[in-house]
Design a protein around this nucleic acid. Structure first.
Lengths: 272, 272
DNA sequence: ACCTATTTATCACATTGTGAGAATTAGGCG
DNA sequence: CGCCTAATTCTCACAATGTGATAAATAGGT
């Protein structure tokens, strides 16, 4: 499977490589099931018990897994270390963070600012800033995924995705798309996207967290492709149309600011 | 190499496995060199160019790498997703975070609270809370490593590490230990550790960040082993001995609080 | 539409990953 | 303190697959 839902799986003459299966162990771990044993993983991956132990040992050696107890392994500290490197290397994050802080400081009401991006037919949160430390304003924190068709943050990205990906999304999520009202046919879907594209921001309520309202603007890269989105999430419904309009202008301005400062550290730089 | 500096490498009859080398690609990426090409990695890992491409492809397929451009790959979104799972699954973090927030709220001065743990002969920051959003109080953020012998946060953990690990540390870092004044001999080192252990907290200045003072207390697990440390980092030198004493009591209390609430979600729970 | 650097495919060979089972270790419980 | 069983490693033989060298194809930039 490629980075989006390409390749229906036609000419795959060779099976998954050994390293593929070792890496597949990592994706067994989830919030619901954060602890695995070599035995359980071996059964799940259809390999022998001995191989299960071998996989776990190489992952432990790499720090990607950690032995908690006898038969209990969890995701390891190497992941924490790697994520630090991801943060340090992410140019968009580096540019966006101060902008997000400034935007948040202008808001009086309880709110969160989100920076998100496309990833494998979903949208992932890259960073969240909030002005409420106690109760979380949004559950949509770094590393969390949301479906492509729910929430302002997702939809504003969806609207600007390149046609190739749109086709794949339609192919793989027809049912879900229809359920969210973007029409039963591909033409309806494209029309819905065109409509979304006409608005500079997207506003949606209770699509990610109950009672929360998201106001999202797209962020484009130097080539005019969507890079992600910037959103304001409000704890309580906004006072009125004027309040929403004010916030919509603010997110847009912030998104433009991120785009503007982009040029400096852009990837189009030195080629060799 | 095991999880600390064990195994001098004596009976390793088999070389590194394929998956080992694929995972080794990830550790090439660093803050100084966050972008790699299959060619560069292949040269570095002493494999052919074709194999370099193969490794990169399996890592991209797993989302652990992402193709930025033609010849430029960076660490990928799967790492961000995995780190989210690590955070969600970490019982210590879950217990500590509210305690850290409460502790921070009691402080008037610019400060940060750190939660750290032992990892491969170093100490890694797991979480930081700070009351200064603009300028960072401490550079020691999540995923960052510090040497075992510098900083209050590290030393308070070092003091309580099990003998086996202490021996390995001495074996692998004799030079560095001597440089930090913990004596030229192993006996001196052990004496220094005993002295550290006598104090309930450790205080150190300018050992991690210039001008910052750290005040750290150990956190023990249900079996009495060091699990990590909790630290207050002050932006400016503390007013006087009384101020330090007050803060020392506060971190200790917070550490005890984390230990107390531990019982509920401890790993000693349900066995099968 | 070119042109070159990048990336994939081909293929033959040997390395090594694999499963089954034996041997060992380690932890919990009496 | 030492058993006892589950967990983990070891051994080994075999075939699968990872590998390098080279050719073919692809994709970006000009």
């Amino acid at each position: 499977m490629k980075d989006d839902g390409e390749e229906h799986g036609e000419s795959a003459r060779r099976g998954p490589t050994s390293a593929d299966k070792v890496l597949a162990v990592l994706s067994l771990f989830s919030a619901e099931r954060p602890v695995w044993s070599p035995e359980g993983a071996a059964r799940r991956l259809r390999v022998s018990l001995a191989t299960g132990y071998r996989y776990f040992n190489t992952l432990v050696a790499a720090g990607m897994l950690e032995k908690l107890h006898r038969n209990r392994y969890v995701l390891g500290p190497a992941i924490v270390e790697l994520d630090r490197k991801v943060r340090a290397a992410d140019p968009v994050l580096k540019l966006a963070q101060p902008v997000m802080e400034r935007l948040l400081r202008r808001l009086r009401e309880p709110a969160a600012i989100l920076l998100c991006r496309y990833y494998r037919q979903k949208v992932m949160c890259i960073h969240q800033e909030t002005n409420r430390s106690g109760e979380p304003v949004s559950s949509y924190e770094r590393g969390t995924l949301q479906p492509m068709f729910r929430g302002a943050t997702s939809k504003v990205i969806l609207a600007h995705l390149p046609p190739r990906i749109i086709v794949n999304l339609w192919r793989d999520h027809r049912r879900e798309i229809a359920a969210t009202g973007m029409g039963p046919s591909f033409e309806d879907f494209k029309a819905a996207l065109r409509a979304l594209r006409r608005e500079p921001v997207n506003v949606a309520t209770s699509e990610v967290d109950e009672g929360r309202t998201g106001i999202a603007a797209p962020i484009f890269d130097a080539n005019g492709r969507v890079n992600g989105s910037l959103s304001i999430v409000l704890l309580s419904p906004p006072a009125g149309t004027r309040a929403v309009a004010r916030l919509a202008i603010a997110v847009q301005a912030a998104a433009r600011e991120i785009e503007r400062s982009r040029g400096v550290t852009s990837d189009k730089g030195s080629k060799k």
